[in-house]
Each structure stands twice: as C-alpha cells, then as structure tokens.
Amino acid sequence: LKGVVVAGGVLAGAVAVASFFLRNKRR
C-alpha cells in the first residue's frame, strides 16, 4: 500500500512539472 501512495505522489509531481513546462513553452 505504501508503494502505491509513493507512486501516486511521484505521478502527481511528474504531471505538475509537465504542465509547468508546457506553460513556459507557450510564452
């Protein structure tokens, strides 16, 4: 169960970083 929580956190972080980079590329 702990691994699932960690994986979810990593996935959420990756999505946040990806969206951040996409926003920067638009400018």
Rank of each mutant, 00 (worst) to 15 (best):
L1H: 04
L1G: 11
L1W: 01
L1P: 10
L1A: 10
L1S: 03
L1N: 10
L1I: 13
L1Y: 14
L1V: 09
L1Q: 06
L1K: 09
L1M: 02
K2P: 11
K2L: 02
K2N: 02
K2T: 14
K2S: 10
K2Y: 12
K2C: 15
K2D: 03
G3M: 15
G3W: 01
G3T: 10
G3A: 04
G3R: 11
G3E: 09
G3F: 03
G3H: 09
G3P: 03
G3N: 03
G3Q: 05
V4Y: 04
V4A: 11
V4F: 06
V4N: 03
V4K: 01
V4T: 02
V4H: 15
V4Q: 07
V4I: 15
V5A: 06
V5Q: 06
V5Y: 15
V5K: 14
V5L: 08
V5E: 13
V5H: 15
V6Q: 03
V6C: 12
V6D: 13
V6P: 04
V6H: 15
V6S: 07
V6I: 09
V6K: 02
V6R: 02
V6N: 12
A7S: 04
A7K: 11
A7Q: 02
A7N: 06
A7R: 07
A7M: 12
A7G: 06
A7I: 12
A7H: 00
A7L: 10
A7F: 12
G8A: 10
G8V: 02
G8Q: 04
G8F: 02
G8K: 04
G8W: 05
G8C: 01
G8T: 01
G8Y: 00
G8S: 09
G8I: 01
G8P: 05
G8H: 11
G9H: 03
G9W: 15
G9N: 12
G9A: 09
G9Q: 01
G9T: 05
G9Y: 00
G9V: 05
G9I: 15
V10S: 10
V10T: 13
V10E: 13
V10D: 13
V10I: 00
V10C: 12
V10H: 06
V10L: 05
V10K: 06
V10A: 06
L11W: 02
L11F: 14
L11H: 05
L11P: 09
L11Y: 08
L11M: 05
L11K: 04
L11S: 03
L11I: 07
L11A: 12
A12I: 14
A12L: 04
A12Y: 00
A12N: 14
A12C: 13
A12G: 07
A12P: 02
A12Q: 15
A12E: 08
A12M: 13
G13N: 15
G13E: 08
G13D: 11
G13V: 05
G13C: 12
G13L: 04
G13K: 07
G13F: 06
A14M: 14
A14H: 08
A14N: 11
A14I: 12
A14K: 06
A14S: 07
A14V: 03
A14Y: 15
A14L: 06
A14P: 07
A14C: 02
A14W: 08
V15S: 09
V15D: 05
V15Q: 03
V15H: 04
V15L: 06
V15K: 08
V15Y: 12
V15W: 03
A16M: 15
A16C: 06
A16I: 01
A16K: 04
A16E: 15
A16Y: 14
A16L: 14
A16H: 11
V17Y: 02
V17E: 01
V17S: 12
V17I: 09
V17R: 06
V17H: 09
V17P: 00
V17N: 00
A18Q: 13
A18V: 00
A18K: 13
A18G: 10
A18D: 03
A18W: 12
A18N: 10
A18E: 10
A18I: 11
A18P: 12
A18T: 04
A18S: 12
A18F: 01
S19Q: 06
S19M: 01
S19T: 00
S19A: 04
S19C: 04
S19F: 15
S19E: 10
S19H: 04
S19K: 01
S19I: 08
S19Y: 02
F20M: 06
F20P: 11
F20T: 06
F20G: 03
F20H: 14
F20A: 01
F20L: 11
F21N: 15
F21E: 00
F21Y: 14
F21I: 10
F21T: 06
F21M: 15
F21R: 01
F21K: 12
F21G: 06
L22T: 01
L22Q: 15
L22W: 15
L22D: 00
L22V: 12
L22K: 05
L22C: 00
R23I: 01
R23E: 07
R23G: 10
R23P: 09
R23W: 09
R23M: 15
R23D: 11
R23N: 01
R23S: 07
R23F: 06
N24E: 11
N24I: 04
N24L: 00
N24C: 08
N24W: 14
N24S: 03
N24T: 11
N24K: 13
N24G: 05
K25V: 11
K25P: 00
K25C: 14
K25M: 00
K25Y: 00
K25T: 13
R26G: 10
R26W: 07
R26I: 11
R26P: 15
R26F: 07
R26Y: 13
R26M: 01
R26E: 03
R26Q: 08
R26C: 12
R27L: 12
R27F: 07
R27K: 11
R27E: 05
R27D: 15
R27W: 13
R27C: 00
